[in-house]
Computed example of a mutant assay.
Amino acid sequence: MSLKEEFEEHANLAKTLPDTTTNENLLILYGLYKKATVGNVNTSRPGMFSMKERAKWDAWKAVEGKSFEEAMSDYITKVKQLKEQAST
């Protein structure tokens, strides 16, 4: 299985994470997913009254130095970690 196929499989798995998954972890996944699928941040930072969008933008910006492959690999690892935590 290629890295891209494994990434897509784990992106689908991420949709089944429990509701108890913290916002911090969801933001990490969001940033890695955007980096792996879009690349570096390509929009301006949302205003201070758009708290949710601003947090998502910040999470994406935080992984800006990673390569596509690194982001995919880190995303897969994070989903596995969260799935294991949910099953214990």
Rank of each mutant, 00 (worst) to 15 (best):
E8F: 13
E8H: 12
E8Q: 15
H10G: 00
A11L: 15
N12K: 15
L13K: 14
A14D: 04
A14W: 13
T16Q: 11
L17F: 08
L17Q: 10
D19C: 00
T21Y: 06
T21C: 10
T22P: 02
N23W: 07
N23Y: 06
L26N: 13
L26D: 03
L26W: 03
L27K: 02
I28F: 00
I28Q: 04
L29E: 06
Y30L: 03
Y30T: 10
G31C: 07
G31F: 03
G31A: 09
L32F: 10
K35E: 05
K35L: 11
K35T: 06
K35D: 00
T37L: 03
V38W: 03
V38I: 15
G39Y: 03
N40L: 04
N40Q: 15
V41F: 01
V41G: 02
N42T: 12
T43Q: 14
R45S: 09
P46S: 08
F49C: 00
F49V: 05
S50H: 12
S50Y: 13
M51L: 14
M51Q: 08
K52V: 13
K52I: 15
E53R: 13
E53Y: 01
D58R: 05
D58W: 01
W60R: 02
W60L: 06
K61N: 10
K61M: 11
K61T: 01
A62N: 09
